[in-house]
């Protein structure tokens, strides 16, 4: 009899274990897929977050670089992964833009469960010797005089969308010149071959500080601590042209809500720390803690917005 009772108790304990299994997460190592090659911003932010998450969880968080096809190869891998919270993806704002230009091997709206945003950083409009203007007003005066040529880091990237929304909001005429990546684009602006580039902060800051390029404005709502003297889109009455480069975590669709909420909570602990604030501030960025729902809403809204912009500006692969 007694034996039976023990067995029953054990069985009950077993069930109880199952019930709390979700909040026990993670019980083994977690893979964070970085869909880009090592060394880029996604990789650096991804490794930072992975390191801090593994300290909180007491489980290793292994970063796996899966570059290729923009970020499509790595993203497709995560879309097809088992939705158990042990395969996560870091991706950026371009994730919501890719779908507007290319046919992707996955469905960005339905194959993923957004988990939370990490941080965001504005783009900064820079000009070189081809467009020797020093301020926003001078820039606008020149831009209304002649159609400018703007560099992009590739068709349908954040730089192109950023410039297109500005073009629309300010009623300008500008034509894209496409490059393979931000570096050659920057080089040609500094060399005076192209007029302007809506650059990432990371790339533009050292050039602005060295006087090789002139910063005109930032694309965010608020001024960036890295460029306190540059005006924002909102200040100049171009609210519709606000763009932020952000990074966020994603899980495969169908990942249990308890796990998603737990990752979100732990991610926010990291995002809210002073260390993270400092880490992001180096490149002009700010932490951006969100709830799961807020982040999902952002992703949804931006995906729809870029689709619309792409149609209007005729940015498509044809």
């Amino acid at each position: 009899m007694r034996l039976l009772r023990i067995a029953a108790a054990l069985a009950f304990a077993g069930f109880a274990n199952l019930a709390v299994a979700a909040t026990d997460y993670p019980t083994k190592s977690v893979t964070l897929v970085v869909p880009f090659a090592p060394g880029g911003s996604n990789d650096i932010v991804g490794r930072y977050v992975a390191d801090r998450l593994s300290k909180i969880w007491g489980q290793p968080v292994v970063v796996e670089n899966m570059p290729g096809a923009g970020s499509a190869i790595g993203s497709a891998h995560v879309a097809k992964a088992k939705p158990d919270g042990y395969t996560l993806l870091i991706n950026s704002v371009t994730f919501t833009m890719n779908a507007a230009v290319q046919n992707l091997p996955f469905d960005p709206a339905n194959d993923f469960q957004p988990v939370g945003m990490i941080g965001k950083v504005p783009l900064v409009l820079v000009v070189g010797p081809a467009l020797p203007v020093k301020s926003y007003d001078e820039f606008m005066a020149e831009a209304k005089k002649r159609p400018l040529k703007y560099a992009t880091s590739g068709l349908g990237g954040v730089n192109q969308f950023g410039t297109e929304v500005l073009k629309k909001a300010a009623g300008l005429k500008m034509e894209p010149v496409h490059y393979k990546g931000g570096s050659p684009a920057m080089a040609d602006v500094i060399g005076g071959h192209v007029d302007l580039f809506f650059s990432s902060m990371t790339q533009a800051l050292p050039q602005i500080r060295a006087g090789l390029m002139t910063g005109i404005m930032v694309s965010s709502e608020e001024r960036s601590p890295a460029t306190p003297d540059l005006p924002t889109m909102v200040e100049k009455g171009l609210k519709d042209a606000v763009v932020n480069q952000w990074w966020g975590l994603f899980a495969p669709a169908g990942t249990p809500d308890e796990i998603v909420q737990k990752i979100n909570a732990d991610l926010n602990t990291i995002v809210n720390s002073d260390e993270t604030k400092e880490f992001l501030a180096k490149d002009g960025g700010t932490p951006a803690p969100t709830s799961v729902e807020q982040f999902a809403e952002t992703v949804k809204k931006e995906t729809a917005k870029w689709k619309e912009i792409a149609q209007e500006a005729n940015i498509k692969a044809e």
Binding site: Q102, G154, L155, G156, E318
Partner: peptide
């Protein structure tokens, strides 16, 4: 992907 047009 063609850099100039985005066509594959």
């Amino acid at each position: 992907i063609d850099v100039a047009s985005g066509v594959t």
